[in-house]
Amino acid sequence: AEIMKKTDFDKVASEYTKIGTISTTGEMSPLDAREDLIKKADEKGADVVVLTSGQTENKIHGTADIYKKK
C-alpha cells in the first residue's frame, strides 16, 4: 500500500472504496510508525493509506483510513 496525502487522495477518491481504519501506537520513530501503518494496510489488502491523525509526545499515535481500488 502507498501513503497518500489527503489533498492528493481527494483528486482520485472516486477510484477507491474505503475498507477500514488502522492505527499505530508506541515508542517508535515517525518512520517506524509509517512503516507499521503500511504493513497493517498491506495485511488488509489495501492499495492506499490516507493519514487522518498523528500525534507525538512521549509516544507516537497515528490513524489512517485504508482504501482498495474499485
Rank of each mutant, 00 (worst) to 15 (best):
M28Y: 07
T24D: 03
D8T: 04
K40W: 07
H61R: 12
M28A: 07
A41P: 01
T17P: 02
K39P: 01
T25R: 09
G26Q: 11
D36H: 10
M28C: 10
G26P: 09
H61E: 12
D65E: 09
I60Y: 12
G20S: 02
I3M: 07
K5D: 15
G62K: 12
S23T: 11
E15Q: 13
A13T: 04
K44E: 07
S53C: 14
R34P: 03
E43V: 07
K18D: 02
S14Q: 08
A41Q: 00
K5V: 12
Y67C: 04
N58R: 08
K69C: 08
A64S: 04
E27N: 13
R34W: 13
G45H: 07
V12A: 02
T63D: 08
K59W: 15
A33M: 12
S14F: 10
D32M: 12
T25N: 14
G20P: 00
L51P: 05
D42R: 13
G54Y: 15
H61N: 11
L51W: 07
K18T: 04
D10L: 10
Y16A: 01
K5P: 09
K59A: 14
V12C: 07
G54E: 15
S53V: 10
I38R: 09
S14I: 07
D36M: 09
E35Q: 12
K68D: 02
T17G: 03
Q55P: 11
K68M: 07
T52Q: 13
I38E: 01
E27D: 11
E43T: 06
N58W: 07
I60V: 12
A64D: 03
K39L: 06
T7Y: 08
N58K: 09
L37E: 01
K70M: 08
K40S: 05
D8I: 04
D65I: 06
E43M: 10
T63Q: 11
T17I: 15
I66H: 01
K69V: 04
S53D: 13
D36E: 14
D8M: 05
S53M: 13
I19V: 07
E43G: 06
V48S: 02
G20E: 03
E43Y: 08
G54C: 15
T21S: 11
K6D: 07
E43Q: 10
D42L: 13
D65Q: 04
A41H: 00
G26S: 11
I38V: 07
K68I: 14
I66P: 02
S23F: 10
D10N: 07
G62E: 12
Y67W: 02
K40N: 04
G45W: 04
A1C: 12
D10S: 06
I22Y: 01
S29P: 06
G45R: 05
K6M: 09
D8E: 10
K18H: 15
K70F: 05
I66R: 02
S29T: 09
P30M: 13
N58H: 11
K39F: 06
K59P: 13
T25G: 11
V48A: 03
E35G: 05
E57I: 09
A1D: 00
F9D: 00
K6S: 09
G20Q: 00
H61F: 14
A41E: 01
I60T: 12
I38T: 03
G54H: 13
D65F: 02
A1M: 06
K44W: 13
M4Y: 05
D36T: 08
T17E: 13
D47I: 04
Y16D: 02
E43L: 12
E27T: 12
E15P: 00
A33E: 07
G62C: 15
K11V: 07
M4V: 05
K39G: 05
L31W: 08
K68L: 08
S53E: 10
E2M: 14
R34S: 07
D10G: 05
K59N: 14
A41V: 00
K70H: 07
K70C: 09
E57Q: 10
A1P: 09
G54W: 15
S14R: 09
L31S: 15
A33H: 05
L31D: 15
G54Q: 11
E35M: 14
I3S: 02
G45F: 06
D36C: 12
F9L: 03
S53T: 10
T7F: 08
K59Q: 11
Y16P: 00
Y16E: 02
E43D: 07
I3H: 01
K70N: 10
Y16H: 03
T21N: 06
K11P: 06
D42A: 13
K69R: 09
K44F: 13
D10M: 12
L51N: 00
T21Y: 05
A64M: 06
I22N: 00
G54D: 14
G62I: 15
K39E: 04
D42W: 13
M28H: 07
D36V: 08
K18F: 14
N58Y: 08
A13R: 13
D36G: 06
V12E: 03
G26Y: 09
K39N: 07
A41F: 01
K40C: 06
E15C: 15
D8P: 02
V50Y: 04
T21E: 08
D42P: 01
S53G: 12
